[in-house]
Nucleic acid binder design. Sequence first.
DNA 1: TTCTGAAACTTAAACGCTTAATGACCCCTA
DNA 2: TAGGGGTCATTAAGCGTTTAAGTTTCAGAA
Lengths: 354, 354
Amino acid sequence: MSRKKPTIGDVARHAGVSTATVSNVLHGKTDLYAPETEDRVWRSVRALGYRPNQLARSLARGLTHTLGFVLERHHGMRLTRNPYAATVLDGFIEYAVPHHYQVKIIALTTEDPNEYAAALEDGTVDAFALLAPVQNSPMIPWASNATKPYVMIGSWFPDEPTILSIDSDNEQAMYDLVQWLIGQGHRRIGFIRGPYNHPSAIQRLSGYKRALADAGVQIREEWVVGEAYSMEEGQKGAQKLLALEPRPTAIIGGADVSALGAIEACWMSGVPVPGEVSVVGFDDIEAAPLSQPALTTVRQPMYEMGMLAAQLLIEQLQSETRLTGPIMIPTELIERGSARPWEPIASKGAAEIR
Amino acid sequence: MSRKKPTIGDVARHAGVSTATVSNVLHGKTDLYAPETEDRVWRSVRALGYRPNQLARSLARGLTHTLGFVLERHHGMRLTRNPYAATVLDGFIEYAVPHHYQVKIIALTTEDPNEYAAALEDGTVDAFALLAPVQNSPMIPWASNATKPYVMIGSWFPDEPTILSIDSDNEQAMYDLVQWLIGQGHRRIGFIRGPYNHPSAIQRLSGYKRALADAGVQIREEWVVGEAYSMEEGQKGAQKLLALEPRPTAIIGGADVSALGAIEACWMSGVPVPGEVSVVGFDDIEAAPLSQPALTTVRQPMYEMGMLAAQLLIEQLQSETRLTGPIMIPTELIERGSARPWEPIASKGAAEIR
DNA sequence: TTCTGAAACTTAAACGCTTAATGACCCCTA
DNA sequence: TAGGGGTCATTAAGCGTTTAAGTTTCAGAA
């Protein structure tokens, strides 16, 4: 039943050759053995049901053919609650697997730099994708003097210009979104922000403020609420915004999950979306088109960003080069049903009749 | 920059002891070294920035401290489209990581038994979780004479009674759900089934039929539609059902994703849910309470099932025993807004006034 | 007839760690 | 004074591969 697995040595003995020859046959180095030897070896391999041990291979070669996908504690440890992470991961796997790289998920449970080092430096992966680290993450210094290829996804640090990162231009994208809302007649625009120490949250907030300033809208402090990207924060944030007087005519979710939570809160408060308040998000997750009403949002191609991340890692490994610097991915406004032009009070009745 | 990583030998030299002693200190075998030796070793470890190489450790010990989570091709390779898989995986990771086991996702891209063997027998994991294999999966024979611990989640094969599996009693749960609908006055009940070769789909369909038969309802062939668990199948299936004359008063999604697709289709066809048709699902995924209306469904504790799977694997590894047989997890009907009692035509107007 | 070189293998040293076996030393006891 | 036990270390044989370097054989060229 649980008899030992055959090793390359067993195959060699069975075929009457050396282990080196077996290894060569296994790797198809055709100029190192005679065709009839090859036959014998393959027959022995099949006869014994031999399967190479990846561990031993990796150790001997110093390469594991595995890519690490690193999640930090603040990502919440649940893929089902973090569509951003899940989508990027999907794309990452999509690219890596057909290119013969396996994917190892490294879920860090503490902020302890020691745990980071232990998990990242244990020799089990050839390269890393670092998912959206926060500003003070131990990953930043680690990345700066990493010996293996890595790529950061979804976070971009202007003061760390050498770090290879894939991100969208959060500041500008949010600026454009707000400008679009303003173009639709909105002036009182609430904003459900993300984590205080997350670059994307900071950058999006900054774009929001800049757009309002440029439009000559005096920003009110109470318009900015929330402190995380999540449904719950979206709900809570929207509740606060709906209670304001005068109430914002539009609510921006710093991420789609926040916006979805906001829509939920509007339903619960009996405030029609987009009738009385427009809601927009950022990301375009799978659930975005499925909400009622479907969410208008800024699309980041997360799946493709995941694929690109895997591609860049594999290219770096194969070419033995190192890439640096930020790669900015264009975003796109996706208009669906959750936002509509704001009509001044006077004509509001008319607007509803149409 | 890319200077080589220090090995245990470097530490030994630096501390003036043998590698065996370093290894012993690293593992806290306190009766094998003097306290002051321990100090020296730790100081050297820190001085050199030494990190053990897991590969070498695993090879030497024959244990990797890694659990494999095996997804087959039919799972669709995208976690974001398969909430069932994602939720189970979340639970699996939740249990494994704090218990010092890493999780490796093994995504099989073909049905080729060779790929299976290569991926499963490469020595990189100590045990496996097999996610919901289909009936003719190469995993079944493989599991039967596996040498490592494994557990199957979400599929249960009555004719393979020794396979350790975690599942709910799909047949009975669906029977109960249908009976409940019947108790609510429904008689014409549509069913969006899952894959033809998936045990859960077959079992749920069988429960559906048995309940209708027991209630003396003559089942009509056109009531059973669909051939996969997915939003698209749910939409397409519901469209067919809505076109029937007389139209079903209730639609069962073989899985929540199907039910969600069905609700979507009803919206698109202008058929109010639950006003004119009740829709119910199976699973209780995260999105279930968020749809409009919130989905009434049969809850399977998928997250907990994932945790249990990890737990059973780790227990088997630690006790060096092997568990067998099916473990049935109780289900629970979660009543939300998407289903309501069916009122015969006569009183229908009245029902709508309330 | 000797030399050269290609073809086909084998040898053996890595890769970085674990662990059973062994040994040296010292103290205690009979 | 020999022997027995504890301590605290070291030695060396694995774990299952890869691969550079070396060996043997033989054909063909000089």
